[in-house]
Computed example of a mutant assay.
Amino acid sequence: MSAQHAETPHPGPPQLRTVADIRAALRDGRGFPGDAESFEADLARALDTSTATDLHQVADVIKTYAGSIQAFSDPEFDDALQEGLDLIAEIKKGNRE
Rank of each mutant, 00 (worst) to 15 (best):
Q70W: 01
D54N: 07
A6W: 11
V19C: 04
R45C: 04
E97V: 12
Y65G: 03
D79M: 02
R30N: 04
A80P: 10
D21N: 12
L55A: 08
Q82F: 04
H56Q: 07
K92F: 14
A3E: 15
V19H: 01
I22G: 05
T49C: 02
I62S: 04
F77T: 08
Q82K: 11
D79T: 13
L81A: 00
E40C: 02
S50T: 12
H56S: 15
H56I: 05
L47W: 04
T18C: 02
I62T: 08
V19M: 04
T49W: 09
I62R: 08
R17E: 09
D79G: 03
A24C: 02
Q57F: 04
S73E: 08
L26I: 02
A52C: 05
A80Y: 14
E40S: 08
A71F: 06
E76M: 06
A25S: 12
Q82W: 14
Q15H: 07
S68L: 11
L55D: 09
A41C: 07
A89K: 05
T49G: 15
E90T: 00
G12N: 03
V19A: 09
P75L: 11
I88A: 08
H10I: 06
L81C: 10
D42R: 06
P9T: 04
A41W: 05
H56E: 14
I69W: 03
D54W: 12
D48K: 10
D21S: 01
D60R: 13
A3H: 15
P33Y: 01
L55M: 13
P9L: 12
D78S: 14
E7C: 06
M1A: 14
I91E: 00
D42K: 09
R27I: 14
T18N: 00
A52D: 09
F77E: 02
I88N: 03
G94F: 02
D54A: 06
A20H: 12
L81W: 02
A80G: 07
M1D: 08
Q4M: 12
V61T: 01
R96K: 10
A71W: 05
N95W: 13
Y65T: 02
D28N: 14
A80C: 05
A80V: 11
T8V: 12
N95D: 06
D42L: 00
I22M: 05
V61M: 07
G67H: 09
S73Q: 05
G84Y: 05
L43H: 09
A25G: 07
G29H: 08
P33E: 13
D86K: 05
A46E: 10
P11H: 09
D86R: 11
A3R: 15
E7R: 15
E7H: 11
A20C: 00
F72T: 01
V58P: 13
L47G: 07
R27Q: 15
A89S: 02
E37R: 13
L26D: 02
R17N: 01
I69C: 08
P14N: 01
D48H: 13
E40F: 13
S50W: 11
R45G: 00
L16T: 00
D86C: 07
A71H: 07
V58N: 12
I22T: 02
A20F: 00
E83W: 15
A20E: 08
E83I: 04
A3V: 14
